[in-house]
């Protein structure tokens, strides 16, 4: 899928699902600062997340998606869990970069070595660092997971009403 197709699909699906208002919270669990640099560039003109109906939010309570980088340092456990719990359901977690996926550090006294040791992860984006296009692709997959969850959530709601 090239960049144009990727953008078109993202735009269409974020429109149908969230009325062009999908909010992303980023979380650094102990990265080398390069994943953060690529995340910042997602909002830069070459990729321009906002035109696709995706936005960064400074509050987990407003977020639909968590974008987690870094090697899951144990000192960040509390902050990572609190951020996860503060994000309302339905939510999806995207782990980005080799550290977050478990490809760099083995678990030791300082770190877990993979984000899914701390919180459940839905989508894994490999790369050291993953390029902004890879991140967009990851976000698209995550939206797919959210679609499933939103449809089940609506179904559950209907069940409760009829019951």
């Amino acid at each position: 899928m090239d960049a144009q197709q990727l953008a078109a699909e993202l735009r269409a699906r974020s429109l149908s699902l969230f009325g062009r208002s999908l909010h992303v919270r980023t979380l650094d669990s102990g990265s080398c600062a390069v994943c953060e640099s690529e995340i910042r560039l997602l909002a830069a003109p070459h990729y321009d997340l906002h035109r696709l109906g995706l936005f960064f939010t400074p509050a987990p309570r407003h977020a639909d998606l968590l974008l987690v980088s870094g090697a899951a340092v144990r000192a960040m456990d509390l902050a990572v869990r609190k951020t996860y719990e503060a994000t309302p359901d339905p939510k999806a977690v995207v782990a980005i970069g080799a550290c977050a996926l478990g490809g760099v550090y083995e678990s030791d006294l300082f770190l877990h070595g993979a984000v899914d040791e701390v919180i459940p992860v839905d989508v894994y984006v490999p790369g050291c660092p993953p390029s902004p296009l890879a991140l967009l692709q990851g976000l698209l997959v995550a939206i797919g997971r959210l679609e499933e969850r939103v449809s089940t959530a609506r179904f559950d709601l209907r069940e409760e009403r009829t019951a």
Partner: peptide, 28 residues
């Protein structure tokens, strides 16, 4: 919050293997 104990991790590695971690101390 970001201390990954890299210097301890380098101990006992071959210098080539350690370089992989040295690059990822501060990727920028």
């Amino acid at each position: 919050h970001k201390h990954r104990g890299v210097e301890r991790r380098l101990r006992g590695l071959t210098p080539e293997r350690a370089l992989f971690f040295v690059e990822r101390i501060e990727g920028l």
